[in-house]
């Protein structure tokens, strides 16, 4: 973004047409945004200014890939297709990636690409259209970025159970029913695997109940603390909103089409980034509110049984019309 303004400032027409004050105001707004983001973040990487020369070319490509991995890790099974495929405006791409990089740093590690998004549960409240900053996930409803240390940690629970293969369909039915009765929903189901999401409050009870349905051979439970990630994203969103408001004011003050277009481009970029963050917050909120339980009915190595039972008497095998009529 700064390179964009540097380029803009170098234009000879700028000084002559008297646009300098407008650009200065825009620059101040951007600096305010940068300061706000840096001030809220804890890590040193967060505070890295996107305006540092040489930072973009080196990080942009790599960050793009890391960003996707981070998303996959964080939003497993729930990421929305719209969100993932949302294009960024070309002029602002580097800056967008930089923001993505910051999220990725707090987000953690890489992971597998997420599966198709699940159908939204009927039991869920209509969170999708609400403003992310006005609402918080389950355990931290009234929390804000200023008192984040006081709030309950925001945790994402995941469990994977390997269950012995016996009466699989019946057991899968039971797991699905249990999830629905607990206020959860089905994410995926096939012949041997079922993935359900259960309200986090009922996660432990549900896990115990599911474990009794079959013979659990292997159990893997993971908990990811996303408290910092969540509030960082909220803060960034808040800052972006402030920047958007300023751009909207600037748009009203534009003196000609060229100025208006320049501000409009930035406004679009900020809006896009806001939508992106809102989407991520929504997914994160969903992951916090609903824990994921995967039950897999699969042995580590299969003991095959021949489905056709054969008594070991040769003459029995020779019965039949084919032998009888063979002359």
């Amino acid at each position: 973004m700064v390179s964009f303004y540097a380029k803009y400032l170098k234009k000879p027409a700028l000084g002559r047409s008297g646009r300098l004050p407008l650009v200065a105001v825009m620059l101040c707004a951007l600096l305010a945004m940068a300061c706000g983001a840096a001030g809220q973040s804890k890590g040193g990487d967060y505070a890295t200014s996107p305006a540092e020369p040489g930072a973009y070319p080196q990080s942009a490509g790599a960050v793009d890939g890391d960003y996707d991995d981070s998303e996959a890790e964080m939003m497993e099974g729930t990421v929305s297709a719209d969100y993932r495929s949302e294009p960024s405006p070309a002029p602002a791409r580097a800056t967008t990636r930089d923001i993505a990089k910051k999220v990725e740093i707090s987000g953690g590690s890489s992971g597998a690409p997420p599966p198709a998004p699940p159908p939204p549960p009927q039991q869920q409240p209509a969170r999708a259209k609400s403003k992310p900053t006005e609402e918080s996930p389950t355990s931290a409803t009234a929390a804000s970025s200023t008192d984040r240390r006081k709030v309950t940690p925001l945790l994402v629970y995941k469990a994977h159970l390997n269950v012995a293969v016996f009466e699989t369909e019946k057991s899968i039915d039971k797991v699905e029913r249990l999830a629905r009765e607990a206020g959860g929903y089905l994410v995926r189901r096939d012949d041997t695997v079922i993935v359900v999401r259960i309200p986090t409050k009922k996660y432990h009870d549900a896990l115990e109940t599911i474990a009794k349905i079959g013979d659990v051979i292997h159990r893997e439970v993971s908990v990811q603390d996303v408290t910092e990630q969540f509030y960082d994203m909220q803060t960034r969103l808040k800052n972006l909103r402030a920047v958007r408001d300023r751009f909207e004011q600037l748009l009203g003050k534009a003196k000609n089409v060229e100025e208006a277009l320049a501000v409009q481009r930035e406004l679009e970029r900020v809006t896009t980034e806001m939508e992106r963050l809102e989407g991520r917050l929504k997914v994160l909120r969903e992951l916090i509110a609903f824990s994921t339980i995967t039950v897999e009915f699969a042995p580590r190595s299969s003991d095959k049984i021949d489905p056709k039972f054969r008594l070991p008497f040769g003459w029995l095998s020779s019965l039949g019309l084919s032998r009888l009529l063979e002359l």
Binding site: V165, F166, I217, P299, S301, S302, D303
Partner: peptide
């Protein structure tokens, strides 16, 4: 039986 064969102990 459980770990390698995938049998459920009933």
């Amino acid at each position: 039986m459980r770990d390698q064969g995938g049998y459920a102990l009933i």
